[in-house]
Write a protein that binds this DNA or RNA. Sequence first.
DNA 1: AAGTTAGACAACCGCCTGTGT
DNA 2: TACACAGGCGGTTGTCTAACT
Length: 313
Amino acid sequence: MGREAAARPKLRRGLWSPEEDEKLYNHIIRYGVGCWSSVPKLAGLERCGKSCRLRWINYLRPDLKRGSFSQQEEDLIISLHKILGNRWSQIASQLPGRTDNEIKNFWNSCIKKKLRQQGIDPATHKPLDLDDANTDEAPRDESNSKHLPAVSATDDFAAMAAGDDPLAPPPHSPTVSFDPLSVVTNVPAAMQGSSSYGAAHSSFRSDNLCDYGGVDVASSDAATYTAGGGDSSSHSNGTWTCGSNVVGSGEPSMMAHLDMFARDAYHQFDPAKYSPWQQHSFPIRSMSRDLPDSSCFDLARSALEDEFSVDFL
DNA sequence: AAGTTAGACAACCGCCTGTGT
DNA sequence: TACACAGGCGGTTGTCTAACT
């Protein structure tokens, strides 16, 4: 019995602990994504490779956009679903920072219900028949998904879905939601000391604040952070605010972390040092996710990349 | 205050496909 | 060609939490 157990180590299942996240994140940051089946062993995890892959893709990836879906995203998902059916991965490919799992969950928990309330069959995108309206989920003709016309991967689904001018910039283009912990840990060295970045909604300012579209990240000893978008916010008392909502007040450990992130981001960028699992140290699971209005964190990341000739992760 | 319910999200499962041997 | 393996995908289930009774 013991030998069997040794030959086939029991794999952990269920929710990931912060320690496991740390191990996986460190491993991927250091070695990159390679053979997932070897990752658990190399990273010291008692998980299967598939589980590691899922955890990375759906949660740890630095470019993930968390927080609630915007109305624009919701409309795009509905339009794309009309064209693609339940091809969540293809839909997700048109929404940067969103995962297929996230979109799938959003569809099943929110959009379906909304469409039904509007008298639209979420499966066919056609008006509900009275009969259909009484049935919870009319079994969908799988042809919607399986017999769809082949679409080139290079086609702009977003433009197709919206019926927009194909020459117009895709709706998802440069703006991505800001995850302070993610972006801060991805500030390239080249950005340090740059004087201004107003056009791209972000800047390193002369007053030692890094301004990301309303997010001021202090680099001085004073722990002042704001996230207020247009309507600004108070920060002299060391609170995170979004609009009129205080999101970080009364969380000393959180403020300590933010202080740590901010200083390090400005003075010595080290992506391996601080990473997303540190969010687990304070109650909220992720800044952007728990903010009532994540839109105030929008950041034109591509503009930053162009400016500094770098690629964010 | 305790129990119940519903919603949101995370994770797993099984199948399919591509690739190498 | 057959087989094994890894990765990807969509469906489903499990877990947590807030709202409600």
